[in-house]
Amino acid sequence: MNLHLFLLCLLLAFGLLSVMARSLLLAGISLAAASVSLTLVLFEMNAPWAGVFELSVCAGLITVLFVSTVSVVRREEQFIAENRLRFYSLPFFLAVFGMAFWLFAEPLTRALVPAVPPQVQINVGTTLWQLRWGDLLGQLCVFVAGALAINAFFRNKNNA
């Protein structure tokens, strides 16, 4: 329980750092660290498959994409005059929200989670490949749509 709480605090701390960091590169690295923390939380909750996907895709692939994009547009970041006070006041607003939410956490959880007995455990492989194989088809379609969209963004004017 203590390890779980520590990992959740780590996840929140890196999440906050990614919002509050002035440098976008630091924000991207914090986001990757938050992904690693979430991976550890998922492993601790006996969800290794989701953890492996989170680690490889979110902490790996998305970080590479994000840092590549930051390296393209980084110069411009300094010219956006944003009020930094708004970002630095996030912990205060978060604390107020947290205290308000904690009061409603128990009734909300009881209202949302039906009091039914736990079902029979079915492993991820059986669920994904047999019970919800349609999800895989949907994932494939989303991949193709994303690839086509990115291709459309960077299409050469002469080839259009």
Partner: peptide, 28 residues
Amino acid sequence: AMGNLGLAQSIAITMIVLEVVVVAVGLG
């Protein structure tokens, strides 16, 4: 909590796939 971690993980995996596509398109 509901004792159905297999289903939760499979939906989480689907969500991660959607997330990476959304982020890739957004960054593009």
